[in-house]
Design a protein around this nucleic acid. Structure first.
Lengths: 255, 255
DNA sequence: CTAGATTTGTTCGTATGTATC
DNA sequence: TGATACATACGAACAAATCTA
């Protein structure tokens, strides 16, 4: 055998063939500007193109699937189809990372405060009549839920209010982070429940803040929106602290 | 239409066996509290345990590998080894998500401003003598780099200053987000370069801010730390805007 | 509604490369 | 140096899912 041996350091292991193919397919998707709905060549074609066996191709496709770039479907017209986005894949990966770290909600709110203030000011002027109506409807639905004593559903609707603001933002990074925190808080309320009377006071306060926010949005007053949002976050943190909330620690296994 | 079979079909597909196994291995790792360095059973053992073939096991392990939970190593004492963490996997996934979205640096700084202020105030009282010395050394190294005209290296060192603050934080979520933004800004400076005289003024201003921050940390004054950091971020955004910076759009292919 | 065609999903057997002893 | 254990890769099949005629 000629010098095909590992001339480099032992730490520089040979790159697995399936990883090389996955990397190359990534580049192809980016280079050829493949859009959601388009399909990659089927397994047999890929086997011929890369001159390798079926199992190797399947491992490469599995990597792309886990990364959220494609979805696999069996049958005719099946195969690897380009996925629209991978926001949930990114969020799930971030959850995995946070799984082993203990997070108390005070830390979460230290992050949320700054982010939501930025979100509130940034969406001013970007909410059309339909979006504002959606916010009004959310507030009404939220009020109805609390009036019916369905506090968990009310809390979820409150968080949906903030998700709606994310929809209106043109800042993809800010929107992702805010949505991610909302999903963390959703899990919190799902698994801890809480005292009913405390929740009622909490919900009433939040509804008032949301109404003030919508007023600021209608007046297109970014300063007011930021100020109201700041107070809103501080109040929410205060309530959550009194509820002695803590995050569940099994984010990994949960979907 | 009469009862078409595909009314809720897409979500109710049969779960692939390899995905079931990957999910189960995830649970096992979490349930048995497996720590970094420990190894999963080898492929033959897993084949027996799950009663399936090699290819299926390999696909499942590939999924865990892409998710950053394990690394595969050949040879004796090889196999799937639990990975310490997957911070870079989460960051890479987030980059993938942001790839197709256009992000200007004004949006990045809208996020960074709130986060870094929270970071600055949260690390007050958590920096021991060694950490403070590390910040001093970073400032000195940064100053030396700018004096030598190595502006790119200086800019990287400036960002390292903020990474050091992340190291000192006990807020895993906040630290992750700040580090992620630092990595975005690192790519920015790597690929755009910039005017030398503008960079020099930018660097001098940043060094001054960093010194003021360390003073606030030594005095253990959270209010001052937050205020200085806020001004620091506003100035940085202002400079970046004048540099007409923009983010590279090929985050996907890059490592 | 059935039947066939197409493509992924899965299995088995075997061979090769690589790291440890 | 050789032997061993293990991941890596190949190739040929079969099973299951899904579309089309």
């Amino acid at each position: 055998m000629s010098g095909t041996a590992a001339e480099a350091a032992p730490s520089l292991r040979r790159i697995k063939l399936s990883d090389q193919i996955a990397e190359d397919l990534c580049r192809r998707i980016a280079r050829e500007r493949m859009e959601p709905g388009q399909r990659l060549p089927n397994e047999q074609a890929l086997m011929q193109q890369y001159g390798c066996a079926k199992g190797t191709i399947r491992e490469a496709l599995k990597a792309l699937e886990v990364q959220g770039l494609v979805t696999m479907r069996p049958g005719p017209n099946g195969g690897a189809e380009i996925r629209p986005i991978s926001v949930d894949a990114a969020a799930q990966q971030l959850r995995r990372f946070l799984h082993f770290r203990q997070l108390d909600f005070a830390q979460v709110y230290a992050v949320r405060r700054g982010l939501e203030v930025a979100l509130g000011t940034s969406v001013v002027g970007r909410l059309d009549a339909e979006a504002l109506r959606g916010l009004d409807e959310n507030i009404a639905a939220c009020e109805a839920a609390f009036a019916a004593g369905e506090h968990v559903r009310g809390r979820n609707l409150e968080l949906t209010f903030h998700d709606l603001l994310c929809d209106a933002s043109d800042n993809a990074l800010l929107a992702f982070m805010c949505r991610f925190i909302n999903s963390l808080l959703r899990d919190l309320v799902e698994f801890r429940g809480g005292n009913k009377t405390e929740y009622a006071a909490f919900g009433a306060h939040n509804l008032d803040s949301h109404r003030q926010l919508v007023s600021a949005f209608r007046a297109e007053d970014p300063e007011a929106a930021g100020r109201v949002m700041h107070e809103h976050m501080c109040c929410a943190e205060h309530f959550m602290r009194r509820l002695d909330a803590s995050f569940r620690n099994d984010l990994l296994t949960g979907r």
